[in-house]
């Protein structure tokens, strides 16, 4: 049922996949964190010709499965490196969530701050960059962190487009050696070991930033 020898044999392969998983999470989060901010700021554009189409795109991408989005882009963009597609699509999907997080953060900046920026006749760039965003972003860091953790746990979806991340490697090793028990148990353990301390950290950060 459980063979330590097999487990030891599979571990290096699965750990190698874990490296890809971490890379995809890091770069995917970067896309989500930057793009989400852009979407949130554009969401406050003065004209509804920007706001409404943006809202529609966010709603659509948010309510459809990331696995199908990955598949669709992969099939429709042949020749592109699967890992790149995975990072961009996963990042885009999560940008829809992070944009909502930023939006809440921006909404929570007191009105007086905006009015002060107007009174000082700061240009819009400085109003956003110097006044609003530093206050808005600080409060939402734990929420962003939680989405990074969620994304981390959704990276196995990349295996459907042949990215050799951790679960792909575990599956491969499992079927080659008929060692599914060892392979998937190791993968589960690695996920738990990596995500539990991170979510504890976010919880602590949340408490500290609350004051």
């Amino acid at each position: 049922m459980w063979d330590w020898h097999t487990a030891r044999e599979g571990l290096p392969l699965i750990l190698h996949g874990f490296g890809i998983t971490l890379l995809a999470t890091a770069l995917g989060s970067l896309v989500a964190i930057v793009l989400g901010l852009v979407i949130a700021v554009l969401g406050r554009a003065p004209t509804r010709w920007v706001r409404l189409p943006l809202r529609a795109v966010v709603e659509f991408v948010r309510s459809t499965p990331v696995m199908i989005q990955l598949f669709a882009v992969w099939v429709l963009a042949p020749g592109l490196d699967p890992l790149t597609i995975g990072i961009v699509v996963l990042g885009l999907h999560y940008a829809m969530y992070t944009s909502e997080v930023y939006r809440a953060g921006i909404d929570a900046v007191p009105r007086g701050q905006w009015e002060a920026a107007v009174a000082l006749s700061l240009p819009p760039i400085r109003t956003w960059w110097g006044v609003v965003l530093p206050q808005a972003v600080r409060k939402v860091i734990p929420a962003l962190g939680n989405y990074v953790i969620s994304m981390f746990k959704e990276t196995p979806f990349l295996s459907v487009i042949t990215v050799n991340e951790m679960v792909h490697e575990a599956n491969q090793f499992g079927s080659d050696n008929f060692a599914y028990m060892e392979a998937f148990t190791i993968a589960a353990a690695i996920f738990l070991i990596a995500s539990y301390p991170t979510s504890m950290l976010m919880r602590k950060l949340e408490k500290r930033l609350a004051h």
Binding site: M1, K153, E154, P156, F157, V167, A170, N171, G174, Y180, M181, A183, F184, T185, A187, A188, A189, F191, L192, S195, Y196, S199
Partner: peptide, 21 residues
């Protein structure tokens, strides 16, 4: 913490591939 921490994908594959063992 266990079920939150270990990815749905892995849980499903574990139930599908490893549990029969």
């Amino acid at each position: 913490e266990f079920f939150r921490g270990t990815s749905l994908y892995v849980q499903l594959f574990w139930l599908f591939f490893a549990l029969p063992i």
